[in-house]
Structure formats: structure tokens, C-alpha cells
Amino acid sequence: MSVTPPGGQRTLQKRRQAQSIKEKQAKQTPTSTRSAGFGGSSNSILKIFTDEANGLRVDPLVVLFLAVGFIFSVVVLHVISKVTGRIF
């Protein structure tokens, strides 16, 4: 078996290949919020909301109270339909 001497075309090609692989990897965008390093879904956990997007900002406690209020509004609807004796 002959040993190829170092240098020459082949080495250049190898270098080019290594370079292009590196570039490709650097260009690749992360596949999820977690692999970009910002938390989010992991292998066994589904997480959807990690960032604070633009929108109608609400406080978590407000959400909790509004949710309870919403449930009470449905109770009120029940009462109304009971009192009037018909379903609207």
C-alpha cells in the first residue's frame, strides 16, 4: 500500500470541506426555543409560552380573578335560565 505524501490537492479539498461544514453549522438556526437557549419545551415537557410578546399585557393575578369571574358569569347564566324557566 502506498502512502500518499502530505499536502497537495487532497489536503486542500479536505480543508475546504471542513470549512464548509463549519459554515453550514454556523448558519443553521436552532430547532426550538430551548436549543436556542431560552427555555421552552424539553424532551418530556411541552412548554408553549416563554417570551413576553406584544399584546394586551395582563397580570397573572388578574387572569386568575377574571377566570373565576368568568365561571361565576356562567353560574349567573344558569340562574337566569332557571328563573325565567326557559332557555332564552
Binding site: D51, E52, N54, G55, P60, V63
Partner: peptide, 11 residues
């Protein structure tokens, strides 16, 4: 629409 979507604040 996005500005109307409710969004919970981060702690």
C-alpha cells in the same frame, strides 16, 4: 390582531 391578544407578563 397581535396587539389585541392578551399576554401574561413575565415575572
Amino acid at each position: 390582531f397581535l396587539s389585541l391578544l392578551p399576554e401574561v407578563e413575565l415575572p
